[in-house]
Design a protein around this nucleic acid. Sequence first.
DNA 1: CGTAACCTTGATTAAGATCAATTCTCGTGG
DNA 2: CCACGAGAATTGATCTTAATCAAGGTTACG
Lengths: 241, 241
Amino acid sequence: MDKSILKKVNLFSDLNDDELEKIYSHSTIKKFNKGEMIFFETEPYNGFYIVIDGSVKIFKISEDGREHVIHFVYPTNTFAEAPLFEQYEKIKNEEFTYPANSMALEDNTKLILIRSDVFYGIIEMNKSICLKMLSGLSRKLRHLNSHIENISQGVPKRLSLFLLEELKKSEKKEKDIIELKFSKHDLASYLGTIDETLSRCLKKLQESNVISVKGRSIHILNKSALLKTSGYKMKNYHAAE
Amino acid sequence: MDKSILKKVNLFSDLNDDELEKIYSHSTIKKFNKGEMIFFETEPYNGFYIVIDGSVKIFKISEDGREHVIHFVYPTNTFAEAPLFEQYEKIKNEEFTYPANSMALEDNTKLILIRSDVFYGIIEMNKSICLKMLSGLSRKLRHLNSHIENISQGVPKRLSLFLLEELKKSEKKEKDIIELKFSKHDLASYLGTIDETLSRCLKKLQESNVISVKGRSIHILNKSALLKTSGYKMKNYHAAE
DNA sequence: CGTAACCTTGATTAAGATCAATTCTCGTGG
DNA sequence: CCACGAGAATTGATCTTAATCAAGGTTACG
């Protein structure tokens, strides 16, 4: 893999060359195609991942076999870091498993696996990476809190919020267009609803000329209408991860 | 305040006497009565809290004025730590606010306020406290993840899960009895439902002899029935915070 | 005791899940 | 290049759950 990729990962931005070299030499890059599993929640934990290319969904399976999407992860973000520290507190080699399942959403999705023991070594040498980690986890916490707040407030509202968040993330590229990396089924699951309900909600938004949907690309025609139905509050909008 | 209290806080268990002294001498203990506000989400952030006695609820208020309880916090646990690290990454004195509102649930609730600047000083000196913090945040993340998973699965299920979690927390004291520190209204809000629905669910559980409710104390009569309606999976149950 | 906050109960309504068909889309092989 | 088939998405009809609306009943506390 290209060593310069590591520098783009916010988590590693304060590491010196020795430390980067250590991670570089001990890490493996893994490639997955669309639909391939990255890990199962039954699997023993051995490290966390960084998305380099493509995208990933994190999901749980309930006892009735249904899938519940918890997160979508995009490049330069990490996932499955939490068990690292729960594990660290205990006897080092206690059996821990991954907290959920994860699957690649696109062909040629590239990930770096950072093994627990490698990372523990880095932590010992470098305090700043701890603070980066803390800051990353804090943002995730904040995000989950607002997700919980939203989830109890009706599908149209949740959908509007989701669209605004996605729009914010992609604001660098083409204005006003969201390219979904995943099926509407996955989106429905993430929003805590089902395909049919999502479909109907999207239809309504189209009929009132707020958005226009073509396959997996969604054009935002009237952002302020979305803000309105999402129950716009400054801080919510800015807190989006 | 009694200095020995600090040692009971897991977060501080690895600090040496100097460090404890520093926290001790720079911290204030604050007392609140039932119903008093600890902070508002509009308020500038100046540090996190540790519950020493009593209990606290963390909640948001939606634009229609409704209250949404996100957390209940009990002794020796911390709350509002997340902004600490989001703030640390930025220019130090950027204006940050609390992430939600908080209110004391009991008379004579005692809290320690750890000011941001004091804590930054400790962090500089002691790496282990970072790891403790990481571990604490990780557990919260895991907890929120399972909360999200649960919230989309019907009130009876959520209620059963809540009861089992509470039972687990209080397992040290009287077996099989849960003493709520808060109103049923707050519980309903935490479960993402309303008073009437909660009332009916509790009634049903009583009629089928799973629990018995007297005021704010709930006696668990048939734990395995609860496990069943909660969709029991080993890891869920053990992951309870 | 009396009042207010808290909780419960019943009747009604609305949101969204479920069930059951279609239609659409896209990749594959003929 | 077209036809096929499978998965994805949409649509309509119905059913379930839980929110809403409207009264009562209980409890706690001055």
